[in-house]
Amino acid sequence: MKPPIALVTGATGFVGSAVARRLLADGFELRLLSRKNSDRRNVDGLDATVVVGDLTDPASLQRAVEGCDAVFHVAADYRLWAPNPDELYQANVDGSRALVAAAHAAGVARIVYTSSVAVLGIPKNGTPGDERTPVTIADMVGHYKRSKFLAEEAVRDLAAQGAPVVIVNPSTPIGPRDVKPTPTGRVVRDAAAGRMPAFVDTGLNVAHVDDVAEGHLLAYRKGKLGERYVVGGDDMSLREILATIADITGRRAPKIQLPHAAVMPVAYFAEALSRFTGRAPVATVEEIRMSKKRMYFSCAKAKRELGYAPRPARAALEDAVRWFRDNGYL
């Protein structure tokens, strides 16, 4: 029997490469959408066909989805700072709309769209948010969150028109192959290297990147069309995350907790400096604003309906630290 053909966008990235590996292990024939000059270290050696295309080029997306049985749209512009914020909306909103529309027109049987918990509401009483927590675009801090919110709305509109879409909302993925690395990966790397002497009061839902990839496959197999599923792990304060990394590495955990107001001027200065250097700032205003809330979420729906079973967050941190160490990041 011929294996199903799946297109994975964003496969050169952190989550996308984990999804690609999981699909290969499940017997899929893979196509990987990649921009012409993308860093492809994360897919080197994979038994897959690389298709050159771009989310801002609708014609390339139409060619990429032709003949596919499934599409896993993982690609996104996740920068929390960009010299031109319009680029985030072009990739995340317009690109997602174009890809899902092209896949539907091409007769793709199922589309798994990677959203984010960043678009979900956070209860004011401190309990974890979930797929049903009320939220509006006014609650979205910064261009990244707004662009992802609008992107999911665009995809949900297409689903209402018949596109066979299942949505997954990953929390904070951590683990191996974070080559860039992601903003959270930088925190893990710097803490493991002893370069984080202080922290702010915030919290995240931490999930192993390979569990997030498993959640994508489960959504493809068992997810209800038009529904969304949080694929996450354990809620942890930043203090707990740093203490766990310190325990893993044998270092002393940082003790200094800084108020958000003390860090904000640093972020403003870093962004102003970046406009001259062209390099990403070491801290962004959006990051500090987001950190004022604890991003805690429940993946009970995915556990109940998909059979999702994430491993403990410590395992994700251990694998991330090991990978950073083995690959010279520390």
Rank of each mutant, 00 (worst) to 15 (best):
A270W: 07
V112K: 00
G142K: 07
K124T: 15
G203D: 11
A105H: 12
L7A: 01
F269W: 12
S115T: 14
D190A: 13
R110F: 10
D178A: 04
S147V: 08
I174E: 07
P310G: 10
A20I: 12
K224T: 15
L46I: 06
P85N: 06
Q257Y: 01
P176F: 06
Y329F: 12
T56I: 09
T114M: 06
Y268R: 13
G129R: 02
T127Y: 01
R97P: 00
R189K: 14
N92K: 08
A109E: 15
V321R: 07
D157Y: 02
L120I: 05
Q257L: 02
R63F: 05
A300K: 13
S17G: 14
I137Y: 07
Y144C: 04
A138C: 06
D319M: 05
P265W: 08
F324S: 11
R195S: 12
V212D: 08
E131L: 01
A6F: 02
V166Y: 05
T172F: 06
R322A: 15
T244Y: 03
N92F: 04
P310L: 10
P83G: 11
G53H: 06
L32K: 03
P123E: 08
P197E: 13
I248S: 07
A109G: 14
G194N: 10
V206E: 10
F72H: 01
D234M: 08
Y268H: 14
V8S: 00
Y113C: 03
Y296W: 14
N92Q: 10
R294Y: 10
S237L: 09
A11R: 00
A6N: 00
P183K: 06
R325M: 08
D201Y: 04
I167Q: 06
L306V: 11
D39F: 03
D190K: 12
P3M: 04
G95L: 07
K292V: 12
R275K: 15
P183Q: 05
R289G: 11
S38A: 15
R21G: 11
V212P: 12
E152D: 13
V65N: 08
G107A: 03
E318Q: 11
F276R: 15
M1D: 13
D77H: 12
